[in-house]
């Protein structure tokens, strides 16, 4: 492996950016594709897009019979939950079992207590401050469940700007309508706003907080595995 390519790959990994190293296993020739690179015109575009989603390394055979190995490097998926509420108490263990790095942010110290959540998940701070330690990115899902605009609006706007692979917000259609008006006023485009999953979660008729957590986690995984269109 070219040492410069190795350094570039490690640089992407250190900054929580996905990259794929493509190795021709016969010649040893390699190239690096960054997640931010445009894939249009790349002969492997479809394969690369699929691999960026799945995060799985593997061998690919080209039409002319060459064997290419794709070393796929994606950062660990994160779930940032705004609101240390009842739903979150169910969502945290479920998401952790599903393999996410989970963070719960809530400035209300009555909610964000170590009695209610293991401390390693908890940031009892305003999102404006807490998100400095867990910067949002394309490999992070953000779920806002306080339905308090003072707490939810900033992280929602930040998540849309950061290109989080999933952005969801709890609240009735009416609550969400008002939220859209506020965010639009704050300069968020209609296109970005349409990416917010609201009412939050898969439509499975979830009633209890734990069931809503299942619905939310289902939506997050769907966005992760099937892409933004949810295909």
């Amino acid at each position: 492996m070219d040492f410069k390519l190795l350094q570039e790959l490690n640089e992407e990994r250190a900054n929580r950016r996905a990259a794929i190293l493509i190795t021709d296993t016969a010649s040893g020739k390699q190239r690096l594709v960054r997640h931010a690179d445009s894939l249009s015109g790349d002969p492997l575009a479809d394969e690369l897009a699929k691999r960026f989603r799945s995060g799985k390394s593997g061998m690919v055979e080209t039409e002319d019979g060459r064997e290419l190995f794709l070393t796929v490097s994606v950062p660990p998926r994160r779930l940032v939950i705004i609101g240390a509420v009842h739903i979150s108490q169910a969502l945290v263990p479920m998401a952790e079992i599903a393999g996410f790095d989970v963070t719960v942010i809530d400035p209300r110290t009555a909610f964000a207590t170590p009695d209610r959540f293991p401390e390693r998940f908890l940031k009892a701070d305003w999102p404006e401050d807490a998100l400095k330690d867990v910067p949002l990115d394309a490999f992070t899902a953000l779920v806002a469940v306080t339905h308090d605009p003072k707490i939810d609006d900033f992280p929602l706007k930040t998540a849309l700007e950061a290109g989080c692979f999933y952005v969801g917000a709890l609240g009735s259609r009416k609550t969400h309508g008002k939220r859209l008006d506020r965010l639009k006023e704050a300069g968020v485009s209609d296109e970005a706003l349409s990416r917010i999953d609201a009412p939050i979660g898969l439509d499975i008729g979830a009633a209890s907080p734990a069931e809503i957590a299942v619905a939310v986690l289902g939506s997050v995984i769907k966005a992760l595995r099937k892409g933004p269109e949810g295909g």
Binding site: L6, R13, G58
Partner: peptide
């Protein structure tokens, strides 16, 4: 291992990388 490969190379060691491909 990828970070180690970089660090070792920087330190002047000759380094090979083995990868499970299938």
């Amino acid at each position: 291992p990828l970070k180690i490969a970089e660090d070792w190379t920087k330190a002047g060691r000759k380094v090979a990388l083995a990868t499970v491909v299938e």
